[in-house]
Write a protein that binds this DNA or RNA. Structure first.
Length: 644
RNA sequence: GCCGAUUUAGCUCAGCUGGUAGAGCACCUCAUUCGUAAUGAGGGGGUCGGGGGUUCGAAUCCCUCAAUCGGCACCA
């Protein structure tokens, strides 16, 4: 006999091989009816699975958060059946659950279009209505290969062939349709419910490999309940409203045009924001002991051959050839430039760590399909720095960078950070003991940071070819994650360029180079800020902080006085003196997301006061001009300059 | 780069199976000087993404290039 333990701690005996369903039935028919799966010792399992050992059992109904994955996975199977029913000859491949939904990749000569969705969804509802049981079978490899070959499912055959020979092949059937699948599934298709929706079609490479065939992917989502689906769709709309490309137009921040794909035309307001970020970062870096430099935009090909970039990234570089046939490249990175500055003049161990920073604009010929607003561009500015130090200093410097990055993100309102360590890739340079040291140093940083309550993780084999790296990912106001900061340890480049310092023993010694960026790309970080705040910037970041809205022309002169006084205090302010109604002006400047509106009419002009209206509120506050400007100027101080 | 979609006025979009371009907002002019999210009237504005082709005739059909969007791949 086996012992089954229930969530309340009660134990009961069953014959070995009793299924979860039998156990549920033994408790009550209604429990059996509403249970869609079980968790055995915490592992989600088919309810029809026999229980063969002592285990804790937990019945999962479809409202259980753990069931969501099953609903989506089951729905993927139903999607595949529906597609094969409607479009004979379509081959199935894989259909996994992903964040917020699932997809299924099909192979078909003619790709799907969103116009097909209505028919597919209808067919899916029919399949769900039939409420066929999911039945699991275990097949041999040969049996599976024979079946899928006969069915013309070449991709499935390939999948079966990649599964280790000693492993069972699980087949899940729903009525006549079946799929190779790891499971688990719910008891029947009817449990999926009706809160699902096909979202979009896309192309995707078979096995994620660009040398393999392009498949037709259908993205979809499913939830336990309709209101959850509705909430999700609403969230997507919200994300669209925050889209930085749309807000940039509405707020007059920047634009793109055809002649410069992937390169930004910064308008005055966007550039003000950009410069505010640079000023902020410059202060933080100076305080942290960095020196700031500037290196050439265009450098001889020979330099890039020495650095190794020419060999690896030639096709992604902007190249230019001059009249004398000399080949130059626009810099795709700042590192080689910084090494030149390090090498210029003899360096001593006493100079280390030497922290060289640059707001370096780099050009990279990114694949056309990669471009995305200002998030992914072909010309961008990095808050780049390289720390030349000894091996012994790596840990300490990486920790200092970490503290600086965390403090900076906090100033921008990002407190949910994930830190990941990427370790040595297969293709790499440098000896293993050097890698050991570098990884150990970064791992200690990771552990220390984890102790402080930050989420951490490891990406094995994801490091750069020259060294391991730490990657900082932040989560924005609507939960999306963005990778920004990075710390990379490099033993390679200083050697390639023959950089050295004089060690205490008078020997020439190659320094370690730590690459480090905190915003990452200024363009990208700006985009993240736009979306994070949905354009409602805090005062210190807002490109235009105040608009004065006059109610009558009698206040024009006073408006000019306010402007002069506010600008003296460093506030970014404009006046709207147009002959328009106050309603019109309030609406227009609210839509432009100006954080502070100062409305002035005859009354305010007479007693030198202002009526303040803040973005997002309809409340009006009246106070004296001096009082108002003092408060606003105090609020507009950058977080690093605030005294408290 | 690959798959798919899209490209019409500054913006958002309409324009059926080919018959010679339209709306709202914005802009300009005039009137209105008004108290916290759209005052009224009038007016101007488009090589229909570029190039080529089919046709008596192309925004509309075909080819091609480009950009953009959604994914995939890429991201030093």
């Amino acid at each position: 006999m086996i012992y089954v333990t229930f969530p309340d701690g009660a134990q009961r005996q069953f014959a070995p091989g009793t299924t979860g369903l039998d156990v549920a039935k033994s408790i009550s028919p209604s429990l059996a009816k509403r249970t869609v799966a079980m968790a055995l010792d915490g592992v989600l399992t088919d309810l029809a699975d026999p229980i063969t050992r002592d285990a804790k059992i937990d019945f999962v109904n479809r409202e259980d958060p753990r069931a969501l994955e099953l609903i989506r996975h089951d729905c993927a199977h139903v999607l595949a059946e529906a597609v094969q029913a409607l479009y004979p000859g379509t081959q199935v491949t894989i259909g996994p659950v992903i964040d917020n939904g699932f997809y299924y990749d099909f192979f078909r000569a003619e790709p799907f279009t969103p116009e097909d969705f209505a028919a597919i969804e209808k067919k899916m509802r029919e399949i769900i209505a039939k409420d066929q049981a999911f039945v699991r079978e275990v097949w041999t490899r040969d049996q599976a290969i024979a079946h899928f070959e006969k069915a013309g499912e070449a991709f499935k055959v390939e999948l079966v062939q990649t599964i280790p020979a000693d492993q069972d092949l699980k087949i899940y059937k729903q009525g006549d349709w079946l799929d190779l699948c790891r499971g688990p599934h719910m008891t029947s298709t009817g449990k999926i419910g009706s809160a699902f929706k096909l979202m979009k079609v896309a192309g995707a490479y078979w096995r994620g490999d660009s040398t393999k065939p392009m498949l037709s992917r259908i993205y979809a989502t499913a939830f336990a309940k309709q209101d959850e689906l509705d909430a999700y769709l609403k969230q997507l709309e919200e994300a669209e409203r925050r889209d930085h490309r749309r807000l940039a137009r509405e707020m007059d921040l920047f634009h793109f045009q055809e002649e410069g794909p992937g390169t930004v035309f910064w308008h005055a307001k966007g550039w003000t924001l950009f410069q505010t970020l640079i000023s902020y970062m410059r202060r933080r870096q100076q305080q942290a002991g960095y020196i700031e430099v500037n290196t050439p935009q265009v450098l001889d090909r020979a330099l890039w051959e020495t650095s190794g970039h020419w060999q690896t990234y030639r096709e992604n570089m902007f190249i230019t050839q001059t009249e004398d046939e000399r080949v130059f490249a626009l810099k795709p990175m700042n590192c080689p430039g910084h090494v030149q500055i390090f090498k210029n003049g003899l360096k001593s161990y006493r100079d280390l760590p030497l922290k060289i920073a640059e707001f370096g604009t780099v050009h990279r010929y990114e694949p056309s399909g990669a471009l995305h607003g200002i998030m992914r561009v072909r010309a961008f500015t990095q808050d780049d720095a390289h720390i030349f130090c000894t091996e012994e200093q790596i840990m300490d410097e990486a920790m200092k960078i970490n503290d600086l990055i965390m403090s900076i993100y906090e100033d921008f309102g990002f407190t949910d950070i994930v830190l990941k360590l990427s370790t040595r890739p297969e293709k790499r340079v440098g000896s293993d003991d050097v890698w050991d040291k570098a990884e150990a140093a970064l791992m200690r940083v990771l552990e220390k940071v984890a102790e402080g309550g930050v989420r951490t993780g490891v990406n094995p084999g994801e490091g750069a070819f020259y060294g391991p790296k730490l990657e900082y990912t932040l989560r924005d106001a609507i939960g999306r994650e963005w990778q920004c900061g990075t710390t990379q340890v490099d033993f390679n480049l200083p050697t390639r360029f023959g950089a050295f310092y004089i060690a205490p023993d008078s020997e020439k010694t190659v320094p370690v180079m730590i690459h480090r960026a905190m915003f990452g790309s200024l363009e990208r970080f700006t985009g993240i800020l736009i979306e994070h705040h949905a354009g409602h910037f805090p005062l210190w970041l807002s490109p235009q902080q105040i608009t004065i809205c006059t109610i009558t022309q009698e206040a024009d002169e006073y408006a000019m006085e306010i402007i002069a006084e506010a600008r003296k205090r460093g506030l970014r302010i404009e006046a709207d003196l147009r002959n328009e109604k106050i309603n019109y002006k309030v609406r227009e400047h609210s839509l432009a997301k100006i954080p502070v509106l100062l409305c002035i009419g005859r009354k305010e002009a007479a007693d030198k006061s202002v009526s303040i209206r803040r973005l997002g509120s309809q409340a009006q506050t009246s106070m004296s001009l001096d009082e108002a400007l003092t408060a606003l100027a105090a609020e507009a101080v950058a977080p690093d300059l605030k005294l408290n």
